[in-house]
Computed example of a mutant assay.
Amino acid sequence: MPKNEKTPRWNAGDIPDLTGRTAVVTGANSGLGIATVEALARAGARVVLAVRDMARGEAAAAKVAGARGALEVRRLDLADLDSVRAFAADWRGDLDLLINNAGVMNISEGATKDGFETQFGTNHLGHFALTNLLLPHLTDRVVTVSSGAHRVGRPRIHFENLNLSGEYSPTRAYAQSKLANLLFTLELQRRLTAAGSPVRALAAHPGWAATGLQGHDASVLRRAFLRVGNRVLAQDGPAGALPTLYAAVRDLPGASYVGPDGLGEMRGGPALVGRSAAASDPESALRLWVVSEELTGVTFPEQLSAPTPA
Rank of each mutant, 00 (worst) to 15 (best):
M266H: 14
V249G: 07
L242K: 13
A279P: 14
S276G: 12
L252K: 02
E283G: 11
L272T: 02
S280Y: 12
L252R: 00
E283I: 12
L263K: 14
A271E: 11
A248H: 02
D281E: 12
T244M: 11
A279K: 12
A285K: 00
G274E: 07
L263F: 15
A241W: 12
P270Q: 04
P253R: 01
S284L: 15
S276M: 10
G269T: 06
S256N: 02
E265L: 05
S284E: 15
G264Q: 04
G264R: 03
V249D: 02
L245F: 12
S276Q: 05
P243L: 10
A277S: 14
A271M: 11
L242H: 13
M266V: 11
P253I: 00
G264T: 02
P270T: 05
D281N: 15
A247D: 11
S280G: 13
P282D: 07
T244F: 11
T244Q: 10
A278V: 12
A247T: 14
R275P: 09
V249N: 07
R267Y: 09
V258M: 01
L286Y: 13
S284P: 12
Y257A: 02
G269Y: 05
A247W: 08
A285V: 05
G262M: 00
M266A: 15
L252C: 02
S280I: 11
R275Y: 13
A248C: 05
M266P: 09
P260H: 00
G264K: 06
L286C: 08
A277M: 13
V273I: 12
S276F: 10
A278T: 07
S280D: 15
L272F: 00
R250N: 07
R250Y: 07
L272Y: 06
A285C: 07
M266C: 11
E265N: 04
A277I: 13
D281G: 13
P253K: 00
G274R: 07
E265A: 04
S284F: 14
S284R: 15
G268R: 09
S276T: 09
P253Y: 01
D251V: 00
G254Q: 01
A271D: 15
V249T: 07
A248N: 00
G254L: 00
D281H: 08
D251G: 08
S280F: 13
M266W: 12
D251L: 03
V249Q: 08
A278R: 13
A248I: 01
V258N: 01
A277V: 14
R267G: 08
G262P: 03
G264E: 04
A241F: 12
P270D: 06
Y246P: 06
V258I: 02
L272S: 06
R267L: 09
A248M: 03
L242Y: 14
G259P: 04
T244K: 10
Y246K: 06
V273P: 03
L245R: 14
V258E: 00
D281P: 13
G269P: 06
A241I: 12
L252Q: 02
G274W: 09
G268I: 08
R275T: 11
G264L: 01
L286P: 10
G254W: 00
P243D: 10
D261T: 04
A241C: 10
G268H: 08
D261W: 05
L242E: 13
Y246S: 06
L263M: 13
G259C: 03
G269E: 05
G262F: 04
P282R: 04
A255I: 04
L245Q: 15
